[in-house]
């Protein structure tokens, strides 16, 4: 009956997420949740390509940025609603991904990873230099459709749920087995008659489509993009990898867990514990706390980097992948204390 329990748990989580905005009226927390849900989509897409198909991408920002720019350019050049971007953004990302994959899937492992990185860089430079079309470094600014965060929240939630459903369906079907066989041993898969090039393309196209849609959502939600935000190597491509790794590579829910952890951790460092340390410092007037909160805010990216190193060093399979290991460690600690 584990399957039923699994479904119940999923529905419970989804219901809880759907109810949250009705209970929490704080815009700031909703903003964080929207970002986390967006990262669920991107992380899941990365995970499909890297975790399941074994083709590690260092350039997810290429698809994310394409989606975001599609939405933005529709507004400034043709006067369409940016919401069309949710439809066309995904398609444009696929249009970019298709020839890229067609050519670059001849490369393997680290070479492919570097090619994706190069794609990311090339697109960022194009978006910067082609000023007549993309407005270059000025970026694109549009009016958001809603002042309230609720509509965005539910759209992001729907997308996140959709991406997880898609990945579940794919991985349960015949396709999933082909993907896994490519990850485990490409040559063996090929020799057994799996058209590896075709299935790698398929995996890339699905991943690019999801990432592009997430990019379009970002444009709609944030209302402003420029090449260094949406084509950012560190803030998008590396973050996508971290979401996947922290949560658990090659697990369905890993990226979802990873997305929430990473967004919260990043924000915690940036705001020095959501501003609570600062508040505590003001309240108690302890000198140590004041300087601690200041240093933490100043070094937020440093803390983030150290976290990355520690996670890869001690939990290479992520929270979901190493869940058993984590539990054993916790239990050992408990029994150790009891003794």
């Amino acid at each position: 009956m584990t399957v039923n329990r699994g479904i119940v748990a999923q529905i419970a989580v989804l219901a809880a997420l759907a109810v949250i905005p009705l209970v929490v009226h704080n815009d700031y927390y909703l903003h964080l949740l929207i970002l986390a849900l967006m990262w669920v989509v991107i992380g899941s897409a990365w995970n499909l390509l890297a975790g399941y198909t074994g083709q590690v991408s260092f350039g997810d920002a290429a698809f994310f940025g394409t989606g975001a720019y599609t939405a933005g350019l529709l507004v400034i050049h043709w006067g369409w609603s940016a919401w069309w971007g949710l439809f066309f953004g995904g398609i444009m990302a696929v249009v970019i991904a298709f020839p890229f994959g067609w050519i670059c899937f001849r490369l393997r492992g680290a070479y492919f990873a570097l090619a994706t990185l190069a794609l990311n860089e090339v697109l960022r430079h194009v978006a910067t230099i082609w000023e007549s079309f993309t407005q270059g470094m000025v970026g694109i600014m549009i009016m958001q459709s809603y002042i309230s965060k609720l509509p965005y929240y539910y759209i992001a939630l729907a997308l996140a749920a959709l991406s997880i459903i898609i990945i579940r369906l794919v991985m349960r079907s015949r396709l999933g087995y082909y993907f896994l066989s490519i990850r485990e041993d490409q040559d063996a898969a090929e020799s057994l008659g799996v058209n590896t090039h075709f299935y790698k393309m398929l995996s890339l196209v699905i991943a690019a489509w999801l990432t592009g849609v997430a990019g379009a959502l970002y444009m709609n939600y944030m209302g402003f993009i420029d090449p260094h935000v949406v084509f950012s190597l560190h803030d998008i491509s590396i973050m996508a990898i971290l979401v996947g790794i922290v949560g658990g590579v090659g697990t369905t829910y890993g990226p979802a867990v990873g997305a929430f952890i990473m967004v919260l951790v990043q924000e915690m460092f940036r705001t020095a514990g959501f501003g609570y340390i600062k508040a505590a410092a003001k309240f108690t007037d302890v000198q140590f706390l004041i300087s601690a909160s200041e240093q933490l805010t100043k070094g937020h990216a440093l803390g983030f980097g150290i976290l990355v190193v520690l996670v890869i060093r001690y939990m290479p399979n992520g929270v979901v992948g190493d869940w058993g290991k984590l539990m054993i460690a916790l239990r050992l600690q408990k029994t150790g204390r009891a003794k």
């Binding site: 890297a50 975790g51 074994g54 590690v56 492992g109 680290a110 990873a113 990850r183 560190h234 590396i238 990898i241 790794i245 590579v249 090659g250 070094g299 990216a301 440093l302 983030f304 980097g305 150290i306 990355v308 190193v309 890869i312 060093r313 290479p316 399979n317 992948g321």
Partner: peptide, 22 residues
């Protein structure tokens, strides 16, 4: 370490790079 992705070492160098920069 037993991991799915052989690229973990490359990712580690990315992390190291971030830490050094910061």
């Amino acid at each position: 370490a037993e991991t799915i992705l052989p690229e973990n070492q490359v990712l580690m160098t990315v992390g190291v790079g971030m830490v050094l920069t910061e």
